[in-house]
Simulated scan of single mutants.
Amino acid sequence: MGNQVEKLTHLNYAEVPTSDPNGFDPDDDGPRIGVSYIFSNDDGDDDQDDNLGHFSSVNNAVSHDEKPFDPQDELECAIHYREECVYERSTGAAAQSAESLLNKCRPGDLLEFVATGQYPHWAVYVGDFQVVHLHRAEIKNNFLTDVSQGKKGRIVNGLYRYRALPPEVIVRNALDHVGSRDRELYWRNSECFAAWCRFGKREFKIGGEIRIGKQPYRLKLLFSEKKSHVLEFQSLEDVIMEKRRNDQIGKVVREAILYSNQASALFCAAQTV
Rank of each mutant, 00 (worst) to 15 (best):
K152E: 09
E138F: 02
L52C: 08
I210S: 13
R198D: 02
D65W: 08
Y119C: 03
D28R: 14
F199C: 01
F39S: 08
R32P: 00
G179R: 05
Q149K: 10
H133T: 07
D27Y: 11
P166N: 09
Q130S: 13
D109V: 00
G117L: 00
T9L: 06
D50Y: 10
D45H: 12
V156S: 07
G158S: 12
V253N: 13
D25S: 12
D176L: 07
V147H: 04
H229M: 02
N22M: 15
R161S: 07
Y217I: 08
N41G: 13
R106Q: 12
Y87G: 02
F69W: 09
R106D: 02
S228K: 05
H133I: 05
C192A: 14
V86P: 05
K226Y: 09
G127E: 04
A78G: 03
G127W: 09
S36E: 12
A263P: 07
K227H: 02
E232D: 05
G23S: 10
N189I: 00
F113M: 07
T145N: 05
A93I: 00
N103T: 04
V114L: 06
E84N: 09
Y81T: 09
P17W: 12
T18G: 12
S56A: 12
R202M: 11
R188N: 09
F55H: 14
N189P: 01
T116D: 15
I240T: 09
H229G: 05
F129E: 10
V58K: 15
Q96W: 03
I210W: 05
Q72G: 06
Q72S: 14
A115N: 04
R154D: 05
N3Y: 09
S180Y: 12
K140Y: 01
F193E: 03
E237W: 05
C105F: 08
G150D: 01
S19P: 00
D238V: 03
C268I: 15
T18P: 06
E74M: 02
V124F: 01
A95Q: 14
S224H: 06
S90N: 03
A98G: 08
L266W: 11
Q248V: 14
V35C: 15
L110M: 05
V169Q: 14
H64F: 05
N41E: 14
G213Y: 09
L101S: 01
E203A: 11
D247W: 00
L165H: 07
G34F: 15
P107C: 03
Q262V: 04
K220M: 10
A137L: 14
L221R: 00
P166R: 09
D47R: 12
V230Y: 04
S36W: 09
A115G: 02
F39I: 13
G23T: 03
Q215D: 07
L144G: 05
C77P: 05
F199P: 03
I155Y: 10
A61S: 12
S56M: 14
C85G: 06
D47K: 14
V273G: 08
S264K: 13
E84G: 01
L231I: 04
D42Y: 08
E83H: 11
I212K: 15
N22W: 15
V273C: 09
L222D: 02
N157M: 01
G108H: 01
V16E: 08
T272A: 10
C77G: 04
K151I: 00
G158L: 08
Y162S: 00
